[in-house]
Amino acid sequence: MRLNTFGSKIVAVAAVGLFMAACSSDPAPTAATSGSGSTQQTATAPAATGIQAGTVQDFQVNVGDRVFFDYDKYEVKPAGKATLDKQAAWLKRYPQWKVVIEGHCDERGTREYNLALGERRANAVKNYLVNQGIPANRVTTISYGKERPVALGSNEAAWAQNRRGVTVLSN
């Protein structure tokens, strides 16, 4: 019995060590000033994060794969535009990728209403990317309405996470 307790302690110490190593921080992204004088965040280089450039992980971590919408709205908000600008630049750099834009809603409203709203959200994201120079034949849309929540709960925090457009890479 004593050996099991000792072994458990060793495992616990090793786990804490691994956890602390995993929590060590990489250099923070640098701020760059655009010609208009506004400051915007630039992503850490993929090599610095250990993520291979041009991969799904690169897109999700260094660019961002989702934008969020206000309640019962489908207009892309300024923060969403910044994310979509980064997505457009990334997609121009890696033309081998196509994307599927998923439109999602929170749990409020009927299934039919939310499917239609999710479609409008997906199309708003698609239209923004196309206006940024991404060929329309590289972008398709689908609406999941309220059927695939990312956050469970009947409160504003959960609903805000579920009102989203997600860009999924495909070949």
Rank of each mutant, 00 (worst) to 15 (best):
P46F: 07
Q41N: 08
G103E: 09
Q57V: 11
V100G: 02
P27V: 01
A124D: 07
V16L: 15
A45E: 14
D70K: 13
I51M: 09
Q52W: 06
H104V: 02
V130W: 03
K81M: 14
C105R: 03
K81D: 12
I51D: 05
V76K: 06
C23N: 15
G37Q: 09
S36Y: 03
A28F: 05
F59Q: 00
Y94E: 07
G64A: 01
Q96S: 14
V100T: 08
V16R: 04
A45Y: 01
P95M: 06
P29H: 01
W97G: 05
T55A: 05
P29K: 00
K77V: 14
P78W: 06
G80L: 11
V99W: 03
K98W: 07
T49Q: 05
N62G: 10
S36R: 12
C23H: 10
E75R: 14
Y94Q: 08
T110D: 04
T55E: 08
Y71F: 11
V125F: 06
K86M: 03
G118Y: 03
Y128G: 03
R120Q: 14
P95E: 08
V56K: 11
A122Y: 02
Y74Q: 13
M20C: 14
I51L: 14
P95A: 12
R111N: 15
E102M: 12
D58E: 05
Q40I: 13
Y74N: 13
Q57G: 02
L117F: 06
Y71A: 10
F59V: 04
E107S: 08
T55Y: 02
R120Y: 04
E102T: 10
T33E: 14
N114F: 02
T33S: 14
W90N: 01
P29Q: 06
K92C: 03
V100I: 11
